[in-house]
Computed example of a mutant assay.
Amino acid sequence: MIKTISNEYLKVNINTRGAEINRVTGANGIEYIWSGDKKYWGRHAPILFPIVGRLKDNHYTYDSKTFEMGQHGFARDMEFEVINQNNDSIELQLVSNDQTKSMYPFNFKLIVRYELIDHKLSTNINVYNTDDKEMYFSVGAHPAFNLPLLKDGSEKYEDYSVKFDNKGVYDQIQFDVPYANLESIEKIELDQPIQLSPELFYDDAKVIEIKNREFTTTLSSDVSNHGVTMTGYNTEYGGIWSAKDAPFVCLEPWWGIADDIHTDGKIEHKVGINNISPNKKFVAKFDLSFF
């Protein structure tokens, strides 16, 4: 079911399936979020939980038991309950059940809150441990943005770049697709924007380690004054991705990452894994500002 929040600047459609942003329309008429054309990629902005990326051979072990789970976890394909909604905000909830327990042996509550503040859409992903044992998880977001944003022929994909407020040298994670290879980390300098081209993503996503800091990236065009800025808070990893030759790009804040090629398969040893004690919560927060 599609739910809508809005203010004088933005209108946002959110699907209760996956608590996924399906559409963001500006008062300027621009459609910011990717249309979900299955020719390239049939999603818009999925929530990733309780893993980010892919498990090696699609399974892991916990307490001597083996569990299977697909890429990016199950939350993006499950129906959320709307627990609160106003004109400019909404909260959606997923609670562990028999279906989730067959893939993930923890009791949890996942609440996604979206709130519009002027030109900004603020997202809080709240992970609650409702179990009586330590809970292991990863969480992230995968918003995709139309490129070019203007459909009048005045822009093209290659006019866009991704700029970084947090300049400096970072570790760039290399992949033996679809797994991370932590023995093959390269340095990347982010003092200059990354100019976009389809070829940039032929070898999969570009992922850097941010190490639990606030991190801001801006996707914008050289020939117009429109784009989107994403700020992640206490972010562990950041990704930029697109499908092959697709007219969109994703800016992805992650609190987790795909399995390392040398994983032992135990979820408590998984690279980028988070853990919270019983009756505690973890908050993953990011903002999208549209212009």
Results as ranks from 00 to 15, higher is better:
residue 36 G to Y: 02
residue 68 E to D: 13
residue 74 F to Q: 07
residue 74 F to N: 07
residue 49 F to S: 05
residue 71 Q to C: 11
residue 39 K to W: 00
residue 55 L to M: 15
residue 67 F to E: 08
residue 74 F to K: 08
residue 41 W to D: 04
residue 35 S to C: 11
residue 29 G to R: 00
residue 73 G to E: 08
residue 48 L to I: 05
residue 75 A to V: 13
residue 71 Q to T: 15
residue 77 D to N: 14
residue 63 D to L: 01
residue 36 G to P: 03
residue 59 H to K: 15
residue 64 S to F: 04
residue 36 G to C: 05
residue 48 L to V: 06
residue 74 F to G: 06
residue 72 H to R: 09
residue 62 Y to A: 04
residue 32 Y to G: 01
residue 47 I to Q: 10
residue 51 I to Y: 08
residue 36 G to S: 06
residue 72 H to K: 10
residue 49 F to G: 02
residue 30 I to T: 04
residue 45 A to V: 01
residue 50 P to T: 05
residue 63 D to Q: 03
residue 55 L to I: 10
residue 57 D to I: 01
residue 69 M to S: 11
residue 33 I to K: 00
residue 39 K to D: 08
residue 79 E to C: 09
residue 70 G to P: 05
residue 61 T to S: 13
residue 73 G to F: 08
residue 72 H to V: 08
residue 42 G to N: 14
residue 48 L to N: 05
residue 51 I to W: 07
residue 41 W to V: 02
residue 37 D to N: 15
residue 57 D to H: 12
residue 67 F to A: 09
residue 31 E to L: 05
residue 56 K to R: 14
residue 67 F to N: 07
residue 69 M to R: 11
residue 55 L to E: 11
residue 61 T to M: 06
residue 59 H to C: 15
residue 37 D to K: 07
residue 77 D to Q: 11
residue 71 Q to W: 08
residue 57 D to P: 02
residue 48 L to Q: 07
residue 52 V to A: 12
residue 66 T to S: 14
residue 71 Q to F: 09
residue 47 I to G: 00
residue 75 A to N: 12
residue 35 S to P: 00
residue 61 T to L: 00
residue 33 I to A: 01
residue 62 Y to E: 03
residue 77 D to K: 13
residue 38 K to T: 13
residue 56 K to I: 05
residue 33 I to P: 00
residue 49 F to N: 03
residue 82 V to K: 14
residue 73 G to H: 10
residue 30 I to F: 01
residue 50 P to C: 06
residue 39 K to I: 05
residue 82 V to L: 14
residue 80 F to I: 10
residue 38 K to L: 03
residue 34 W to S: 02
residue 39 K to L: 08
residue 46 P to M: 05
residue 57 D to A: 12
residue 80 F to N: 12
residue 38 K to H: 09
residue 61 T to Q: 07
residue 45 A to N: 02
residue 73 G to K: 10
residue 37 D to S: 09
residue 34 W to G: 01
residue 79 E to H: 14
residue 53 G to T: 07
residue 73 G to I: 09
residue 72 H to G: 09
residue 79 E to S: 14
residue 34 W to F: 02
residue 76 R to E: 07
residue 50 P to N: 07
residue 31 E to Q: 11
residue 30 I to V: 09
residue 77 D to M: 08
residue 66 T to N: 08
residue 55 L to R: 12
residue 29 G to Y: 00
residue 61 T to G: 01
